[in-house]
Design a protein around this nucleic acid. Structure first.
Length: 693
DNA sequence: AAGTGTACTTAGGACCCCCGCC
DNA sequence: GGCGGGGGTCCTAAGTACACTT
């Protein structure tokens, strides 16, 4: 079939193959079918009822522990452990030395003490193991490490099998029937045993979290439904009940704080959707009241009744600084605070440079909030005018003659505050202020259609993220900078430095050329001896992966691949270092200038990149997007500005916010929209929360 | 205390960019 | 010049701890 060069290839019309119909998995079929249900267009349930009919499959339990029989070394000698003891030892061995539990000097000892106390109890009296210091977990660590490496080398078919198993599990447990509709279940597996990873200085961090058995599980199900079968041999449910006023499917006892955990429907379900919609409508309602509320609490800031004055000041703090209410906490919880539980020690009155504090109205607020996240902010009360000065004065007087550990708002608890808020607006509680302020901030900070006129989608998204970031900062949503991110930024900075040096060298090259000493110009050598070696290693790893069946073979595959990948990285670094050099001596100034321009561009781009990453590394945008900003603001903004909503809400968020996706492009977060929506629909549809007055 | 909403960390997947190959 | 693979980075989704409200 050799065709001569000059033979013209005839234009044959392309054969259009009939497209094969897309084959859905059972899981996909169910998910497609579920889209038909638009709960926000359906009739509301009787008051206080979450459901009339509820049927589900209970929950999935993690498999029993499979012992590996790797010995612990104690005081230099091997120690045999029972499966139960070995399991807990393995939990500990799995913790990274530099992780948030063991890598933090503030919490390391508590974690170890709690773990060791619980473990010793399991080991029993008179056991050889008595001293944590003499325990050597390294054989178990090595075993776990080895397993990880083997898992990395899993073949495609092994991965596919795991996926199928997971999907089958979802088909069994993943869906409930609620009032004639399929609904997705949020968490289908009982939490596996492990070591409790309490955040911050949690007094119970490191304690053993026991395995859950059906005997501590309660089932909530419709009156006419059969209870799900308990599939663990020898066990029965603790109880089966029918309580249609609650939304949970199963509950079990958690062994650390002895509280309850629940199986609930997923975020995309009608239960969660209804309450989410109700939450945002309530925040819109607050927007209608906020003028009056602010006027009222401002007037009360001067009250001679100390309780009234404290409540008013609390309201200002919650409204303007977006603090949480701050409930009381128990002895066996981490010491974290919110507004009502702020102590004298969390406030520092910043003195003026000359030592007179009367002219400066600044307070440094520093405390650990929810999840032990640091809140540290200098509040400049001058910014808030006369009201600010009054709040400053109040705070100063509340702190007067108080010890470090005493409450600033000693006359206000979260219960008192919320009771007061109820009287101000029906259904109002402290957390509504955060929702309202977050949503309002987003709406205010999103640029108008005029401002976005000539921008690309990418630039519009950047503007959206800027507004999102302001909300996240307002709510103090943080993330800890992981070692990986830290390292990433450092390498970027190093690369930036290299680029700058290279630009300097290019300039030197030009002067060498101009002064006729071009023979002095350093040239690029194209020999990277390791390059071929790296490619060879990777090629061999690829071949071996196909054949690898035993653990040892898989181990070897991963090692080979990693060796090759590392070598390849090293070569890339070497290449980057000489990226600016010429292969042949340049003979014109122009040639060098061109390259200098390229490098200037590269440097500029990377500087922006590094700065962005530095600025964002500690801010978490997700929490406000998921929980605080009314999704309808984002949807309407996207529609007005021809930005695909997919770029802002990923799949699960679009599912969670289905009820919001159909708002018109001129929708606004304000009191009027609320009245509109209750005019267009029957009362009670907003989950009762906005129509209960 | 019970029940539900909010918050973080982390594993893994999607996406993007670069490079080599055709 | 287009395409595909690989690697790095960013983002998503899952998991579960923590807080608020009633």
């Amino acid at each position: 079939m050799v065709r001569s060069k000059d033979e013209v290839k005839p234009k044959v019309p392309r054969v259009v193959q009939p497209r094969k119909p897309k084959v859905f998995t059972n899981l996909q079929k169910i998910e497609e079918a579920m889209k038909a249900y638009k709960w926000w267009d359906s009739d509301p349930l009787p008051d206080g009822r979450q459901w009339l009919y509820l049927e589900h499959a209970g929950l999935n339990f993690v498999d029993e522990y499979q012992p590996h029989n790797i010995k612990l070394i104690y005081n230099g000698k091997e120690v045999a452990l029972t499966p139960d003891q070995e399991e807990v030892a393995t939990f500990f061995a799995a913790l990274p030395e530099d992780g948030p539990q063991l890598g933090n000097v503030e919490t390391r000892q508590t974690f170890i003490d709690n773990f060791f106390d619980d473990w010793k109890e399991l080991l029993g009296e008179g056991h050889i193991v008595q001293d944590f210091i003499k325990c050597d977990f390294s054989p178990i660590k090595e075993y776990l490490e080895r397993n990880k490496v083997i898992k990395k080398a899993a073949t495609d078919s092994e991965k596919a099998l795991a996926k199928v198993n997971k999907e089958n599990m979802l088909l069994i447990y993943g869906f409930a029937i609620v009032d004639g509709h399929l609904e997705k279940v949020g968490n289908i597996t009982a939490e596996p045993p492990g070591l409790f990873r309490g955040r911050g200085k949690h007094p119970k961090t490191g304690k053993i979290k026991q395995r859950i058995y059906p005997s501590t599980v309660n089932i909530n199900i419709g009156e006419t439904c059969a209870a799900p079968r308990c599939l663990i041999p020898g066990y029965a449910w603790e109880g089966v009940q029918c309580d249609p006023t609650v939304s949970w499917l199963c509950s079990w006892k958690e062994t650390i704080l002895n509280s309850a955990k629940y199986v609930q429907l997923a975020a995309s379900s009608s239960f969660k959707g209804k309450s989410d919609m109700g939450k945002y409508n309530k925040a819109m309602k607050l927007k209608g009241y906020i003028g009056k509320i602010r006027k009222d609490y401002t007037a009360r800031l001067n009250s001679s009744d100390p309780e009234v004055c404290q409540i008013a000041t609390c309201m200002w703090v919650i409204d303007k600084l977006a603090l949480r209410v701050g409930g009381e906490k128990g002895e066996d919880e981490a010491d974290t605070v919110g507004c009502c539980s702020l102590r004298r020690e969390h406030l520092t009155f910043v003195p003026t440079p000359d030592g007179h504090s009367s002219t400066l109205h600044e307070i440094e607020l520093e405390f650990l909030g929810k999840d032990s996240m640091l809140f540290k902010q200098n509040v400049d009360f001058d910014r808030y005018g006369k009201v600010g000065h009054q709040v400053y004065k109040n705070l100063k007087s509340f702190c007067k003659n108080k010890g470090a550990k005493q409450d600033v708002f000693d006359l206000v608890t979260h219960t008192i505050l919320n009771a007061h808020l109820q009287t101000v607006m029906p259904g109002l509680s402290a957390k509504v202020f955060r929702t309202y302020n977050a949503s309002e901030t987003l709406q205010e900070k999103l640029p108008s259609t005029d401002e976005l006129k000539n921008l690309s989608v990418q630039d519009k998204l950047a503007k959206y993220n800027d507004a999102n970031r302001e909300v996240a900062i307002l709510c103090n949503h943080q993330r800890t900078v992981s070692n990986a991110i830290m390292k990433g930024i450092e390498t970027q900075e190093a690369r930036l430095k290299t680029l700058k040096q290279q630009k300097n060298e290019l300039k030197e090259m030009r002067s060498l050329l101009l002064s006729g000493r071009q023979d002095k110009i350093r040239l690029k050598s194209n020999s990277f001896p390791n390059e071929l070696k790296a490619l060879d290693l990777l090629e061999r790893a690829k071949e071996a992966k196909m054949k690898a069946k035993t653990h040892d073979e898989k181990l070897a595959v991963t090692n080979l691949h990693e060796e090759g990948a590392q070598l390849k990285k090293d070569v890339a670094v070497e290449k980057f270092k000489v990226g600016h050099l010429f292969a042949k001596t340049p003979n014109s100034e122009d040639q060098i200038d061109k390259r200098i321009d390229t490098w200037t561009e590269k440097i500029k781009k990377m500087e922006v990149n590094v700065r962005d990453r530095q600025d964002n590394k500690e801010v978490s945008l997700g929490t406000s997007k998921i929980n605080y900003m009314d999704p309808r603001i984002s949807v309407a903004w996207c529609k007005r500005n021809e930005t695909p909503i997919e770029k802002i809400f990923a799949k699960t968020l679009r599912e969670k916010f289905v009820w919001a996706l159909s708002v018109p492009c001129d929708w606004r977060f304000d009191f009027n929209s609320l009245q509109q929506s209750s005019l267009n629909s029957s009362p009670g549809q907003q989950n009762g929360t906005t129509t209960d007055d």
